[in-house]
Design a protein around this nucleic acid. Sequence first.
DNA 1: TAGATGCATCCGCTTTGACGAATGCCGGAC
DNA 2: GTCCGGCATTCGTCAAAGCGGATGCATCTA
Lengths: 131, 131
Amino acid sequence: MAGSSGTTARPDTPTAAVSPLLGEGGEQVGMVAKFFRALGDPTRLRLLEFLLAGEHTVSECVTHVGLSQGRVSVHLACLADCGYVAARRDGRYTHYRVVDPRVADLVVLARSLAADNCVALAACERITPRT
Amino acid sequence: MAGSSGTTARPDTPTAAVSPLLGEGGEQVGMVAKFFRALGDPTRLRLLEFLLAGEHTVSECVTHVGLSQGRVSVHLACLADCGYVAARRDGRYTHYRVVDPRVADLVVLARSLAADNCVALAACERITPRT
DNA sequence: TAGATGCATCCGCTTTGACGAATGCCGGAC
DNA sequence: GTCCGGCATTCGTCAAAGCGGATGCATCTA
């Protein structure tokens, strides 16, 4: 069933590149899951993409996503804690920006994978169809 | 920190690589968030890493993670729906495996980013410290 | 000084979703 | 044929976490 999207499936790179990294961390799993979960919320993901396009203040982010200021502030702090963005205080304004280029890589890669499985992904009812 | 890639992300490489992808999908955001959320659960992430090391049956996965069979079956189906793994029926056994090498890339990249921010990430109380 | 603005934190409320256990379905063994 | 074993699905329970609104603090302006 899962093989649906014909475009996928490149069984050429086995798992050689990964296994050495995977063997060691039993602890790390929880950490990485926490890291992924930060981007599992549509609001935070939208904020991150907004910040990938350039630095913005909290109020600009509030306008962009259309949620309450308190909520947006929490989401941005969460993204900062997880290392996706960095905060810069300037007087009474706080500017957020993406500092690590790998963040953009991660988003692009995920978008690519999600796009190739968008049909099955959209049909998956085991994860909230939120939005 | 995260010195990783020397050049600081933005000013010169604006968002050229990213923005064309970002501009279009308002719909896509929910999809990609769903995609990320699949890996936001420690159990599913552990299963995915187990499968990155090679093909396994459901019962092998049950033994590996130590949860109820029903739960593991649901998690595996979820990973399949999202395109992380593919299922193969062989008699009364179902084998799961990772078919797309980009999945390994995604996990490695996330591990790298999470490791560089493990201190702040571990301290983040805005996301469940679920083990 | 006082007043206004931007941001962070706290408080109930509500929904999401992970869990074990029970059940159903199918394929192989006898 | 019947029985057994592997997997998928469903149900009830409960913690995680998103939400708006209220509050507190710091900073800029008049």
